[in-house]
């Protein structure tokens, strides 16, 4: 049933598709649900007596800005000591959620930078860019100073890498210079699970 081969986790033990089915099926044990009638009061009373919580993430905190809208900018070896952060806010919209016609979220992106060395005279300028995780497209955000806060509208990528590079001038249209800061949008934390062993033989339609 089990065969020894390498897995993505380096644990050494893999298992065949049929073995997965046999082993995983019994895992799916769920306690029975209770009868619920149409009355909210009854429903709540019933819910409150429901199964013992396995996980309780409730908290009393109320914070104004959740960290899922913030991400750090880290310096490359060319800019040791520099740092920064990106802060996304859902852009104003009469609908509350701002979307483009093709469904991209529209964010106001605030970029804060600290500690970049000022370029030498005629030594170029720092420029901020957005790119996809595949690096197949670069959208220029605009020039940035070695320190400060800069605001942009982001509406073309739901998942992106933010780069700051040192360019010949602020007029450049293509990124060519060395990267000094980079960060990944919070959506970049989404995991690709295709490589996980459990998903390798998933049935499709």
């Amino acid at each position: 049933m089990f065969s020894r081969h390498a897995t993505g986790l380096g644990l050494g033990w893999g298992w065949s598709g049929s073995a997965r089915v046999l082993v995983l099926l019994p895992l799916l044990a769920i306690p029975g649900a209770r009868r619920i009638d149409g009355s909210p009061a009854a429903r709540v009373a019933d819910d409150s007596g429901a199964t013992v919580p396995a996980l309780d993430f409730t908290s009393d905190r109320t914070v104004r800005f959740a960290d899922i809208y913030k991400f750090p900018l880290r310096a490359t070896s060319r800019a040791r000591g520099a740092k920064g952060a990106g802060h996304l806010r859902i852009a104003q919209s009469p609908f509350g959620i701002a979307l483009t016609a093709d469904g991209h979220l529209v964010y106001d992106l605030e970029v804060t930078i600290e500690g970049l060395r000022a370029p030498r005279p005629s030594g170029g300028t720092y420029v901020a860019w957005l790119t996809t995780p595949e690096l197949d497209r670069f959208d220029k955000l605009g020039p940035v100073e070695p320190s400060g806060t800069f605001s942009y509208r982001v509406s073309t990528m739901n998942k992106f890498i933010l780069l700051v590079s040192l360019e010949a001038s602020e007029a450049v249209t293509k990124r060519a210079g060395p990267t000094v800061l980079r960060g990944v949008s919070p959506s970049g934390l989404m995991q690709n699970m295709e490589s996980h062993e459990l998903f390798s033989t998933m049935p499709h339609d």
Partner: peptide, 27 residues
């Protein structure tokens, strides 16, 4: 506060949910 309490669901589901919850879209 808007939140969630999860009762008994298969442990494997909880584990995959933990992977998924590294990012949440606004909607």
């Amino acid at each position: 506060v808007l939140t969630l309490r999860l009762g008994e669901v298969p442990s494997i589901v909880v584990q995959f949910m933990s992977i998924d919850t590294t990012y949440f879209p606004p909607v």
